[in-house]
């Protein structure tokens, strides 16, 4: 009787298991993992810098999530693009040599604390945006600190000392991982800052060397990067060494951001990289775009930069 009951139990489990196993494949087609397509939406990429000429801007469109993506394929070539301020309108024309790029047709230096409006239209689609440019911004000093004592070891040359001074001055020759690079400025009335770091010497040797990185990781390294946005309440920013990958000349651009740029930077997809997709699904959210009728960024900033030359570690 015990054996019979045991057999009954085992049979029940086996039947239930068979039923479940029969439908247990978890392979999925890629198309099953996407949402409804939002292809064909205008993507606006326009960044104004105070005290600099009207910039080139880019008009692209979204592509279905399962489709292959390229800048060429996503470029919008027939857009009508205008930027207006104070009753004056500046027109743009498509760059015939670079799909999706639009060039200003008039000269204008971007003014601080001024409202600019963007309008883009293409094939019945219209996207608009507005930005209030920030006040002017200047880096007061560029320093190398002792990482143990946090005292100033050296004062680096800036571009005010000459266009090449930051790259050739002896005090600007910085050995990789040696000291802490810090820029100090007067914190203005801006919601936040963002730093861009660019390695200027194409082909310079790689200084980043870690046991836990492989060749694929090194191939992915780019010669430019952006920091996450930060508030810099004390008017200073330190450059972490993990943002430096190559030897040679580097320029650090510090941007004092408008609301649009700050909102996008703090919600941008760059900040979501490295997160789990669905596991941290709470953080897979739409960035804070500043474009109506499309997506993208129409923002402005005031910018200043410093430079230095990275020497390989001895």
């Amino acid at each position: 009787m015990v054996c019979a009951k045991l057999k009954g139990f085992a049979l029940s489990v086996a039947m239930l298991g068979s039923f479940l196993i029969s439908g247990c494949s978890t392979d999925r087609r890629a198309s099953e993992l996407y949402g409804p397509s939002e292809a064909g939406v205008l993507v606006i990429d326009a960044l104004l810098l105070v005290d600099q000429p009207l910039p080139d801007l880019f008009v692209l469109e979204t592509v279905a999530p399962g489709d292959s993506y390229s800048l060429e394929g996503a470029a919008v070539r027939d857009a009508v693009v205008e930027i207006s301020t104070g009753g004056t309108t500046f027109t743009y024309a498509a760059d015939v040599d670079s799909a999706g790029r639009y060039l200003p047709q008039q000269n204008h230096i971007v003014l601080p604390e001024t409202v600019y409006t963007l309008r883009v239209s293409s094939q019945g689609r219209e996207a608009t945006g507005t930005t209030l440019t920030p006040e002017q911004f200047q880096i007061r000093e560029s320093l190398l600190l002792n990482e143990g004592t946090l005292q100033v070891d050296r004062v680096l040359k800036t571009f005010r000392d000459g266009l090449d001074a930051p790259y050739v001055a002896p005090e600007n020759q910085v050995e990789y991982l040696d000291g802490l690079l810090e820029a100090r400025f007067d914190r203005g009335n801006t919601p936040g800052y963002q730093v861009g770091i660019i390695s200027l010497d194409e082909g310079s040797e790689r200084v980043l060397d870690a046991d836990f990185l492989d060749e694929d990781d090194y191939d992915d390294l780019e010669r430019h990067a952006s920091s996450p946005p930060f508030e810099a309440p004390d008017g200073s920013v330190r450059l972490p060494w993990f943002a430096v990958y190559f030897a040679g000349r580097h320029v650090i651009r510090i941007h004092a951001l408008d609301e649009n740029w700050f909102n996008f930077a703090r919600s941008s997809p760059e900040s979501q990289e490295g997160n789990f997709g669905g596991l941290a699904g709470d953080s897979f959210e739409r960035p804070l775009f500043s474009v109506t009728g499309g997506i993208g960024l129409f923002g402005s900033a005031a910018m200043d930069s410093i430079g230095f030359n990275v020497l390989p570690r001895q």
């Binding site: 949402g35 960044l47 999530p65 996503a74 660019i198 930077a265 959210e285 739409r286 960024l297 923002g299």
Partner: peptide, 26 residues
């Protein structure tokens, strides 16, 4: 979970250059 509905690209604003990767739109 939140699926992706499109791909797009924007320059990295700090460097104002395009990254190798494009982005997924949630």
């Amino acid at each position: 979970y939140t699926p992706a509905s499109a791909r797009y690209s924007l320059r990295s604003p700090g460097s104002q250059q395009y990254l190798k990767d494009d982005f997924l739109l949630p």
